[in-house]
Computed example of a mutant assay.
Amino acid sequence: MRLPLDQDPTARDLVVLGVPYDDSGRCPGTRLGPGAVRDVSALAHVPGGDRGPGTFDLVDCVDGGDVDLTPWASGAVPEVLYKRLSHLLAGNAAVLLLGGGRSLTVAALRAVAERHGPVALLHLAADPVGSHPQGDFLHQAVEEHLVDPSAVVRIGLRGAGAPGRAQGGVMLDVGRFGRLGVRGAAGVVRHRIGRRPVYVSVAVDVADPAFAPGTGTRVPGGLTSREVLGLLRCVGDLCPVGFEVMGVSPPQDRSGITAALASEIGGELIHQYARAQRIPM
């Protein structure tokens, strides 16, 4: 988004950090995501510019570069990310991660909870937590007291067997989301999470493959881009302390629209972070 590069930032409101890593195997996929999102974001409008002052006039935001994650040392990757985020959060208010994956979400939550205690979780994704090889991050996060289980909202599930509750929180599959609509689902989020510090995790596969073909998900019936971005407008009514936008796999999408959607999601989250700080707009 044409932000200044600062690889050792201090006293910033928000640091954007690339996490170039593949959860599954050695074939390049999601580790190319941060670069693709950065490329398309260079042509994007200023987030929230159509709703008042430009976001970057309201919050001090920089691009912190990429975390150095070698694909050959997967066992050490979560610890490398945790240490990098712990260092950043000691001197800056919040982070927005581009890329990564569910095997690294716990590492991010460890760093965030180290500063804020157990946090609420708003998680948008296509599939139930346990259906992915690395998908039980929520169970692990609750076990480690990183997440408040009563303040979990998961949205966007599709496919058979998606339950209605998640570790004491709430699950809204696409059927329930469709019946509630964006406004109703946002009301559920506000009611369940309230003013607890919240970590917002968005897997781009929450969107239907028509809007995000570069995620590896081929199951139709997901949210539209408009629904995803509309729902995220409620984040400014919460108390967000960290964000991640993950799951972009450029080799699976030559059109680039998946990276473009991820860029829009990241921009919307930055704008909502400014709103959450109660900065007049």
Rank of each mutant, 00 (worst) to 15 (best):
V106M: 09
L14T: 08
G49L: 10
R278T: 13
L14A: 14
L88A: 11
D57G: 10
F211W: 08
Q277R: 15
V40D: 06
T217I: 14
G156Y: 08
L269F: 06
D22E: 11
P251R: 03
P71K: 02
V182D: 03
R192Q: 14
A11C: 00
P4K: 05
G54C: 07
I265S: 01
D66Q: 05
H87E: 15
F137Q: 02
V16C: 11
S131D: 15
R196N: 11
G161Q: 14
D57E: 15
V112S: 12
V129L: 13
P213Y: 03
D8W: 05
Q7P: 07
L231W: 00
S225I: 00
V16E: 09
I193N: 05
A185P: 12
L232K: 01
D148C: 10
D208P: 07
R233K: 08
A166D: 15
H191Y: 11
Q252T: 01
R254N: 08
H271R: 14
A76M: 05
G29T: 02
A166Y: 11
D50N: 12
G75K: 10
L231H: 04
A207G: 03
A111K: 04
V59E: 04
L261K: 00
S131R: 13
P47C: 01
L32M: 13
Q277N: 12
A207V: 00
S86A: 15
A108D: 08
G159E: 11
A120W: 07
A76N: 03
G75S: 14
I265G: 01
H45Q: 11
R254P: 12
G91H: 13
S249A: 14
H145N: 13
G91T: 13
S86F: 10
A212H: 04
I155Q: 07
R179P: 04
D136Y: 14
A42E: 15
A203T: 01
G184Y: 06
P34H: 09
D127P: 01
V228P: 02
L17D: 03
P213W: 03
F211R: 00
P71H: 04
G247E: 11
D39C: 00
R278M: 13
L109S: 09
S201A: 14
V67S: 07
M246D: 09
V241M: 07
L43N: 08
T215L: 02
A141Y: 02
R233I: 00
G100L: 02
C61F: 05
L109R: 01
L3N: 04
V189K: 06
G99M: 03
A125V: 02
H191V: 10
D57Y: 08
T258N: 01
S263P: 03
L121G: 02
G187Y: 12
P9E: 11
V147D: 05
Q134T: 14
V241H: 04
L5P: 04
R226L: 10
Y82N: 06
D136R: 14
D6W: 07
P163C: 10
Q252W: 11
I270C: 08
V19K: 09
S86D: 15
Q167V: 03
E79N: 10
L104Q: 03
L261M: 00
M171G: 01
